[in-house]
Nucleic acid binder design. Structure first.
Lengths: 116, 116
DNA sequence: CTTTCATATGAATGTTTGTTCATATATTAT
DNA sequence: ATAATATATGAACAAACATTCATATGAAAG
């Protein structure tokens, strides 16, 4: 009879697994990146800030849809905004956004060449 | 009257925006990370491989739920598996998984200290 | 202070998605 | 062959979510 209820690997994994709340926060963060519209907005803001109307025009969507997603991104602290006269200008909150997306990009592009 | 339908920033953003398909693929990739169960599975496999029963036991969920999520992760090429006798052993497909999650982790932990 | 322009927001709706339940497949042992 | 063990999978259901429509807020101009 084998040792079914007590493997070393299992104990090891259990010891190193972060607590539930952390894993949940992490999943919630990635969930934000997991939508095409939000991904487009983030990319739009990669190199310059834009106001809501510009983003709306760029993505060719309704202003409402854009505003809703901007709110999601802002709540997640991935973007910030400031008022400028009548318009509101949005911009990336920090460089983590760029590096996270960059890593994802790499994974996608390297999928073709390394498939041993 | 201001220049409403033609801003430099907008043109710049438009020129650099990747094509729709790429952005969609990227969002789909991050979507995979955007679920607590899948995040737990990925973390479980961070330092050692595990069979389905071990993962099921570790996460305290039904075997079916785990198998369904393992399939999602495998389809996304984030994990691979091999048969070993009666059991099937899963492991991380490559290091991108580790770096992507690592970046996310950093963003979370640094959220407290830099809030200017 | 009323109108206009830019953006935000609440409710409703259709779609996507994670889990469960029941069952199928595949390997090993009797 | 048959039973037992390990994993996979299809259908169903409930919960989460993105978009739309209608409307609210807020600044600026007349």
């Amino acid at each position: 009879m084998h040792n079914h209820d007590h493997s070393v690997a299992l104990d090891c994994a259990r010891a190193k697994l972060p607590k539930d709340e952390t894993l949940c926060d992490l999943a919630d963060l990635f969930k934000i990146f997991g939508d095409t519209t939000r991904m487009k907005i983030l990319f739009s803001l990669f190199e310059q800030e834009l106001c809501v109307r510009e983003i709306t025009e760029l993505l060719n969507m309704t202003q409402s849809a854009i505003s809703h997603q901007l709110k999601v991104l802002k709540d997640a602290k991935l973007i910030s905004n400031r008022r400028e006269g009548k318009t509101i200008v949005y911009f990336l909150a920090d460089n983590h956004v760029r590096s996270i997306i960059g890593q994802g990009f790499e994974h996608l592009t390297e999928e073709d060449r390394c498939n041993d």
